[in-house]
Design a protein around this nucleic acid. Structure first.
Lengths: 411, 411
DNA sequence: CTTATTTAATAAAAAAAATTATTTACTATT
DNA sequence: AATAGTAAATAATTTTTTTTATTAAATAAG
């Protein structure tokens, strides 16, 4: 890292004024990243320092190249203030989203724009060292095609399914690389600080920060649902992501909710995931078809021998009755699960994200109904239930932004 | 309020240096209240200001009377630093805990000690204005017996069961005073800022801050269970209490968990509370006795016509088999509910508090077993499950401390 | 029992930051 | 077009704060 603000993140050795200046610069950057752009009088106000001092700090950030003069204010009386923004080209953050059969790689500029990406790169996520090497190879390939100066990339984020201990950076789920210390290996390979996080949290962070036409939601207490083959949520309390002791918070998929005999992937039975997830939806449809229900999915199923969520999304588009019935069923159960989150967390906002949010209103309406049935109106009245419009595409920007915000010390 | 730090809590009108000084004093007090006592070099370090400036601030706080010189450091080489603490006698916080048949009133000193209290004052909590007047009368009575200068009392907290909107200070549960604006009435009556909060949160705040032999727990992510006739939890994320949108967070009692037909107080069925609470315990025992199970509780029941939790606590002390069976049953269900909290929040600590924690190990062990059965070992290994040693006695100090910390701006 | 060492507290000097005043830039009004 | 009014940026001044130096208070070691 070439920038003074990012050097020496905890300020070791710096004393007194130098330490304070570094912090004030970090705060200025934090404000700029949250409000996109700002003037010196505004920043002076926000940082509680005088205008000459703010001018000095901004001038230094300008000289370092982290901040950019982007014009003048237009409204209001009097002399127009100069507007400063983060310089998009000053540094970049790399994010890698690892999925079962593909990886997505993205590069985010300092002002939180994805400027380059490689999506749906075919890849086999296996528990082998070769699999990790394949990821490394793909990242190198991506980097060789990237136009920005490599030294400006100052962090790497990895998003993957399963439980990831954010304290120790251990990957503990069924997906891990034969106990290889992934973080260390990648840090050595790319000479960058590496941050691991859970796929649902990266999705949630992306949705929370870019879900409103690219802008953040204003609600400070929110749950973002990642509805995919499994189900998990990302929790925000007072605007900050909730990690819990080790980063396992949000595993709503494995709360004991149903009195069924279905054994979940986690080994327990009765998990929410067994009745309210993509897998549950597939199980439901297959069972119904075997019982004789007719559906356009029968063709697909007999051809492939299995169903994928994409098939069901497609079937619903064509108005397939059984598929619609299945989604309604799953949605109802999901609502029951979300009622739990509402009772426990009293959120202002729940966003339905992940692949299954592609079902749109078909998913949303029974979820809302079910929530009303399963939680107090007094409490659920507080909660706005919304559909994600960026679905699973939130994860990659979320992953990159998490890296940026961890480096900036915002979270 | 006579102290400059508390005057003008948001610093309106204060500009520049005065505003900063006020904030730095508040921070110094926050540090002192968290660490109990500190030296000037320590404070300078914590506040990131120079020693002469720290000396200046402390001198002013000393002159104002908020801080006290309490001796010298003993260990270490060199000249011994003077130790400063909050001056217990500088200001006080009044807390009132309203229960069904009694109220508890307490007065807390600046350094978080209850210095005076009136416990178990008989009182009928009805939905009438007379009921509110009775509370006011009792507070006046308490105050007239209190030895401290009345002007030094700078805040009043009210703790009561049910849902309390902390944003609007509305009391929305079945217990409210005929829509009387309780907060405004009390503020006028006592000329003090009044803070309302839910009984489970005050209990949790007390337990969290005084539960370890009077000291705070070190775990930053915790759930404190209030196990009484109903059940709720207080959630701490990153050391701070979680309120949610309106302060309704923690209502674990009403999560839909069971497939039973028991109608809960809230109107829904299948709530955790119908199978894991004091009421559920009583229902269970009464049902069993009606079915013919023998128990020493039969006497009490036929005499009074109903059971109270105190009776069951007593019966368990005498080794009553049915009571023990009932507690085990309830504990098992509670564990299932807590598994939900563990999955969602990944806490480092769960404390079983409230009246039923008086069952001790009899409660704790089946709860632990049940948690193991209903959550992933990977996640529940993170979680220490402990019994409260102060039970429901945590609520009054918690209520007072909440007032103090809200006034100090710590939460 | 000195003396060296360590740390705290205070004093003096230097630097940093906030105020205040001035200049610049722009708008609205006459 | 000139002028009054508003707000930003800069310059000058003053105040605040830090830094450095000095003194004070304590312990450990010779």
């Amino acid at each position: 890292m070439q920038y003074s603000v990012f050097n020496n993140l905890n300020g070791e050795g710096l004393s007194g004024v130098a330490f304070k200046d570094r912090n004030r610069k970090k705060n200025a950057i934090a404000h700029l990243s949250a409000r996109v752009e700002s003037t010196i009088p505004e920043l002076a106000d926000l940082l509680n320092i005088s205008i000459p001092k703010t001018t000095e700090l901004i001038t230094e950030l300008l000289e370092e190249g982290l901040v950019k003069d982007t014009g003048k204010k237009t409204e209001g009386l009097g002399r127009k203030a100069a507007i400063y923004s983060l310089n998009p080209d000053s540094c970049y953050f790399l994010g890698v989203e690892i999925k079962k059969y593909k990886i997505n790689i993205g590069l985010m500029s300092f002002n939180a724009n994805i400027i380059d990406s490689a999506l749906d790169v075919p890849f086999a996520f296996l528990d082998t060292n070769e699999s990790l090497d394949a990821i490394i190879k793909e990242i190198h390939k991506f980097l060789s095609n990237v136009s920005v100066v490599k030294e400006k990339i100052i962090g790497l984020g990895l998003s993957m399914a399963g439980r990831i201990n954010v304290k120790t950076s251990e990957i503990l789920s069924i997906y891990h690389f034969g106990n290889a210390p992934v973080k260390e290996k990648l840090e050595e390979e790319f000479n960058l600080p590496v941050y691991l996080d859970n796929d649902s949290r990266t999705l949630a962070y992306g949705e929370y920060n870019f879900g409103q036409y690219g802008l953040p939601y204003s609600e400070k207490n929110a749950c973002i649902v990642n509805l995919d083959y499994g189900i998990a949520i990302g929790i925000f309390a007072d605007g900050a992501p909730v990690y819990g002791a080790s980063g396992y918070a949000g595993e709503i998929g494995h709360i004991p909710m149903f009195n069924n005999e279905k054994i979940c992937f986690c080994g327990k039975k009765g998990c929410l995931e067994t009745e309210a997830s993509g897998l549950a939806l597939i199980d439901y449809l297959v069972k119904k078809m075997k019982e004789g229900s007719s559906s356009r999915l029968q063709q697909v199923f007999s051809k492939k021998g299995f169903l994928e969520l994409e098939d069901i999304l497609e079937a619903v588009k064509f108005g397939d009755n059984l598929a619609i019935e299945g989604v309604t069923e799953i949605a109802y159960n999901l609502g029951k699960g979300l009622a739990v989150a509402i009772n426990l967390l009293n959120p202002e906002l729940i966003v339905l994200g992940g692949m299954l949010s592609g079902f749109g209103e078909l998913l949303l309406l029974p979820v809302k109904t079910s929530i009303m049935q399963h939680s107090l109106s007094l409490v659920n009245n507080d909660t706005r239930i919304a559909l994600s419009s960026i679905n699973q595409r939130a994860a990659l920007p979320g992953c990159c932004l998490l890296v940026r915000d961890k480096i900036l010390g915002l979270i």
